[in-house]
Structure formats: C-alpha cells, structure tokens
Nucleic acid binder design. Structure first.
Length: 688
DNA sequence: CTAGGGTTAG
C-alpha cells in the first residue's frame, strides 16, 4: 500500500513537472485527475503541495487557492509554492496575504519562502512598509546578509520600491556578492534611468572577479541603448560573441533593441535575421526598432510577417504596431488594430490603451481618443501625456488645460517634461498665450521641471505666433543653451506669418548655418520677401538655393480610400480621375467666389499674371486630393487629407468655404498639425 | 514538493 503510493507519487511528480514545463492547464488537470484516481481515499500531504505548486505555476489562481485550502495540513512548502507562483505571475496581493496567513498558522517561512515574498513586496507602492517588515522578519529568523538568495531578493525589493539608501547599505553589507546581487544593481539602475551606473556596476562585477551571465549582458546592452552608447555597445557585442552568449534569445533581443535605439535599424535587422530562434519579444523589438527610426512601412511589413508566422497579437505586439500607425497617420490601420486588441481582450491593458489614445490623437480622431481615455481607470503619465498631446494636435488649448488640471488634481501622477511640452504646444496653437507663458515661467518651481530646449521652442512659438516676435527673440537671447533648429524655425515661421521681415532674416540665417541643406527654410524666407513685395531678395534666395544645389521638397497630399493611397502633386494630371477632379474644382471655384472667396495668390510664382496665379493655386496638391475625396468618399464620412508640407494659405481659406458649401467635414493633417474644417470654419481658428 | 537577477510597447 505504502509502496504503491510511492510509485504512484513518482509518476505523478513527473506528470506535474511536465504540465508545468509545457505550461499546459490541460495536462495539469489530467495529472490532477490521475492523482485522484490512483490515491484513494485521501491525497497524501506531499501530493497536496504538488497540486498547489502545479496550479500556482500554471497561473490558475482559483485552482491554486482551492488546492491550498483542501490541504488538511498545509506545510511551509505548500505555502511557498503558492506564494512563489503568485509572485512570478504578478499577483503580489494574494502572495502577500498567503504569507501573512502562514504566519498566523504559526508556520515559519524558510529560505525558499523569503525570496518569493520579497518578489511580491517589490511591486508594493514606494511608501509601503511591507517590504522592510518582511526584511526585519527574515533577520529575526536568522537569515543574515550572507544568505545570497534571501538578501538578493531583499536588495531587489529595496531598489524596486525606491529605497535606494537601504538597498545600497544592504549591498555593502553583503559579504559575498554573487552575480545576482550585481545584476540587481545593474537592472534597477537601467529601470530608473541611470544607465551610467549600470555600466559602472558591470565593471565592479569584473573587478570583483565575478563572471557576467546572460542577465548582466542584457542589462549592459539596455544601458547602452538608454544612453545611446553606440560604440561601447558595439565593442561589447564583440565580447559577447566571443564568450558564446550570442546563442541566447534574450541577449539577441536586447541587441536588436540596442541597435534600434542607437538609430541603427539596419544593424538591428542584421542581428534579427541571424537569429536561429525567435520569440515574440524578438519580433516586437525589431518592429519597434523600425518604428522608432521612421521606417514605418518596414515596421508594418514585419508586424504582418510576425502575424503570418503565427505570432499572437500580444499587448506588446499591438502597442508596437499602434505606434507605427501613429507615425504613419494610418487611421484605418489603427482602427483595425483597435479591433484586434478588443478581440484579443488586451484593449484595457494600460500600454495598449495609451497607445490607442496616442494613435487616435495623432491620426486625427480626438473624439475616439477621448472616449478611450475617459474609460481608462488607472491612468498613468503616458496616458495623460497622450491625451494632452491629442488636444495639442488639433490646437484645443481649453481641453488640454482642463485635462492637465485633472491630472494635477488627481494627485496620482506628476507631470514630466513631455507633459509641459504638450500643454504649452496646445496653448500656443490655441492662442492661450498668457496661460502658456505662465506655465513656462513657473514650471521649475511648480513641478520641479527644468526647461529643456523643447520648451524653449514651444514658448518661442507661443509668443511669436501671437505677434510678440520681439519678446520671443529676447527669450532666445536669454537661453543658457544653444538654440536649436526648432527654436529658430518657430521664430521664422511667425515672422513670415506677421511680415516681420528683418527678424525673420536673422532667424533664417541662423537656420541656414544649422541646417544648410534644408529647403523649407529657404522657401519660407523667399516667400516672406515675396509677400513683402521684395521680389529681388526673394529671387536672390531662390538663386542661392540653385547655386548650392538645394531642391525644394516636392509637396504632395494623399487620401486613403478603400485601402488605396491616392497621392497628388501640384499640377498633377496623371490621376485616373483627372477630368472629374478638374470639373469639380472649377465648379467649386464659381460657388466659392459667389460666397465671397478671394484667392490668396501672394506666394504663387511671382512672374505670373494675376489670373494665372489664381489658376496656379487651384492646382495645389491638397485641392486635387480634396476634389478626389469629394467625388469618391460618401457624404457621411469625413474626408481626411495628409500633406507632407504645411497647408498653403489659399488652400486653408478655400477649404473653409468648401466645407460650408458642400456641408462636409474635411480634416487635413499637414506636417505640423491638424485642421478640421466644418461649416466655413477651421478648428485652428486661422491661428497656425 | 518550495527560491533571487532578464529581453519587447504607450
């Protein structure tokens, strides 16, 4: 009888183990059923512990709790199995309450229990004392800093709960620091955004004659990625290959990520292509590497490749792909991914939800962004930033400020520099000059955020746009850092808008120094002279462009209809619907003129007659795209037009008329922002 | 029968 139980026990143990290894709840339940059949009438204690371990490791919390509850005499082993599974699967609360439960039963946690308890306590909020309490309990039970497992777990817990002093002290007290202790220092320094410390810790490990392992290597690449240490990372790449770490999937994944973050998508791809084994992390890293380097098409192709090679649309996969859509302004694709997220039950994941808010905001669907945003119960910094950014895109300063206020008052999240960039941008575009400037002036004392170059660019834009170019110039002159292209660009743009030719010339000359090849600035300056009637100077700039070989970026606009992108250039005659488009445009021209429209031809080529100029502006790419949209897209659907340059002044004026005449919503996304035309008006209030 | 440090996303 006893022997039979033992034999059955060995068989069962093997069955439990293989169910856990293959992560198969089906195999697990089968092994459980077999145990019930073989061992009657009652399961022996060690099988009860096995069952708790099985269900806990398979992430079946209800079954694990039931197994623990049905154990007539639970031991420290059953409890530890439960706690460890819960901690590994990010369920810290059940883990900690089981820990408290075993103490109440008078069971003494052992050196296997404490590491899992610390792992659970590591995800407690920063102010929580649960971690330190468990630590003092472990000391009371005699686990001194020389127990590597216990103290490494405590060390990691102190780092993850933001108690850096205590972590540092524990680390210094450890008599024999193993590689795991060094790794805890390295990985947490990366997570906290101190990559330099990670690299220092790596050299500390080497000086102490420790051998790095896979985890140390990943942390090192992560640090190089975070600090953009391309050449250090490349050297380390060579070393890692020599040590034979290059067979490890995680190491290769972190290499892909490293090259991607260091703007070397090509090198990332070489690593990715050389991988013999890939997991979903590999695909996500490579998709992100493309998306972060402006190669959205490649990113999207890779996403489709991952799906067709059987990868599941995980939270990671979908949020990577959504970022790609945001960069591509691919609203239709983004909607499709939204549907994928809903079907896969991951749309409430905070990363996916924030990515959706971001995507809708950037692709011109603020209403959809809002709807998702207001349903997110646990908003974090990125969620708030994405929503405020969405309002900034359409220049809705009022809502941006309201949401910013909500964020501050909710108290859970403090703004970061991106929040301030987004709010000030919204103020700038929405004409809330006073509010925006006040925020800029007080951000240091109110939120402890040091103004960065981005904030200067925003505030120069804010002031200059509102006609205060001189104040904006004073802000630039008072800067402690070197003004960037965006700073001078903001000033130049506003000077052109308000005809401040002299200051505009100063800004343009700075821009020519900083970026001699950029055509946009030359065109802007030339147009500025042209609209001031200073044709000679305008012509000079054009001639200079020709001399140094700068070509004007060809402007183009595009409309997506039935999954086909229709691209238009100015004076395009090649489109299959050319005749219909021209017919509609001339009909619209008459209707608009009857409604009081006057063409704005001041930037058209200046050697043309006035009448020719009028025809000229009627061949702009955005007007061709709009006419195509009006013909093809049914009346209830808004027409969405993308443009690679800024929308032209005349097209902006014309679109307002057309939106009213035909009673359609027209949404234009240019290289700067959205314009939503409706009933003879534009969402930007002509302030752009 | 139970244990620590890990790669990807907004």
């Amino acid at each position: 009888m006893c022997g039979a139980a033992a034999d059955g026990g060995e068989l069962l143990a093997a069955a439990f183990e293989s169910a856990i290894a293959s992560r198969s709840p089906r195999l697990g339940r089968a092994a459980h059923a077999r145990a019930l059949r073989l061992l009657t009438p009652a399961l022996p204690p060690f099988i009860c512990a096995h069952l708790v371990n099985l269900y806990s490791k398979l992430d079946l919390p209800a079954a694990a709790a039931a197994a623990l509850a049905s154990d007539p005499h639970p031991t420290v082993v059953s409890f530890t199995a439960f706690i460890s599974g819960a901690a590994q699967h990010a369920r810290p609360l059940p883990a900690l309450s089981a820990f408290a439960g075993m103490l109440r039963l008078g069971l003494r946690p052992n050196d296997f229990t404490f590491p899992s308890a610390f792992k659970a306590a590591a995800s407690a909020p920063p102010r929580s004392t649960i971690g330190p309490q468990i630590h003092s309990l472990s000391l009371r039970f005699g686990y001194l800093p020389d127990d590597a497992f216990v103290s490494c777990a405590a060390l990691d817990m102190y780092f993850k709960t933001g108690r850096l002093m205590l972590a540092r002290r524990l680390f210094d007290e450890m008599p024999n620091r193993n590689v795991v202790a060094w790794n805890a220092v390295m990985t947490n320094a990366v997570l906290d955004g101190r990559p330099l410390e990670t690299i220092e810790a790596y050299f500390g490990l080497r000086e102490a004659d420790g051998l790095p392992n896979v985890v140390s290597v990943c942390a090192f690449f992560n640090a190089c990625a975070g600090a953009m240490y391309l050449s250090l990372g490349e050297q380390f790449h060579g070393f890692v290959v020599k040590c034979g770490f290059q067979m490890d999937v995680s190491v290769l994944n972190s290499l892909v990520d490293f090259y991607g973050k260091c703007r070397c998508a090509g090198k990332a791809r070489v690593v990715f292509d050389g991988m013999r084994v890939r997991n979903s992390v590999s695909w996500c890293s490579m998709i992100a590497a493309y998306a972060q380097n402006g190669a959205e098409e490649e990113a999207l192709a890779l996403y489709l490749g991952a799906r067709s090679s059987g990868e599941k649309p995980t939270e990671f996969m979908v949020s990577c792909a959504l970022t790609t859509c945001a960069g591509l302004l691919g609203l239709d694709l983004g909607r499709a991914l939204h549907a994928v997220a809903v079907r896969s039950c991951i749309d409430e994941n905070i990363f996916v939800a924030s990515a959706l808010v971001d995507m809708y905001g950037k692709c011109g669907g603020v209403e959809d962004a809002e709807q998702i945003f207001f349903e997110i119960s646990q908003k974090n910094l990125v969620t708030w930033n994405a929503m405020i950014g969405g309002y900034a895109h359409i220049g809705d300063a009022r809502n941006a400020l309201l949401v910013f206020d909500d964020m501050i008052r909710s108290g859970g999240t403090s703004p970061n520099y991106i929040t301030l960039v987004n709010v000030i941008t919204a103020c700038s575009r929405g004409g809330f000059t006073k509010e925006g400037y006040e925020l800029f002036e007080t951000m240091r004392e109110r939120f402890g955020i040091e103004p960065r170059i981005e904030h200067y660019a925003c505030v120069v834009d804010l002031l200059a746009r509102a006609g205060m170019e001189e104040q904006a110039y004073e802000v630039i002159q008072g800067m402690s850092m070197r003004p960037s292209i965006s700073v001078w660009g903001a000033l130049l743009g506003a000077c052109k808008m308000h005809g401040k030719t002299e200051l505009g010339r100063i800004a343009a000359e700075k821009l020519f120094e900083l970026d001699p090849q950029d055509s946009g600035n030359h065109v802007l300056l030339s147009n500025m002279f042209a609209s001031a009637g200073r044709w000679a100077e305008a012509t000079d700039i054009r001639r200079e462009m020709k001399n140094i070989g700068i070509k004007k970026d060809p402007g183009c606009s595009w409309v997506t209809w039935k999954n086909v992108v229709h691209v238009f250039r100015a004076r395009d005659t090649k489109h299959e619907m050319h005749d219909e488009i021209q017919a509609l445009l001339s009909k619209l021209r008459k209707q608009m003129q009857a409604a009081g429209y006057m063409p704005d031809t001041q930037y058209a080529l200046y050697d043309l007659e006035e009448e020719e100029k009028e025809s000229e502006v009627f061949q702009h790419s955005e007007k061709l795209a709009l006419a195509f949209g009006l013909i093809c897209i049914p009346p209830c659907v808004p027409i969405r037009i993308m443009k690679n340059l800024r929308i032209c002044v005349d097209c902006h004026r014309a679109f307002k008329f057309i939106s009213g005449i035909v009673g359609r919503d027209i949404i234009v996304r240019d290289n700067n922002r959205f314009h939503h035309f409706k009933q003879f008006e534009c969402s930007c209030g002509d302030y752009w």
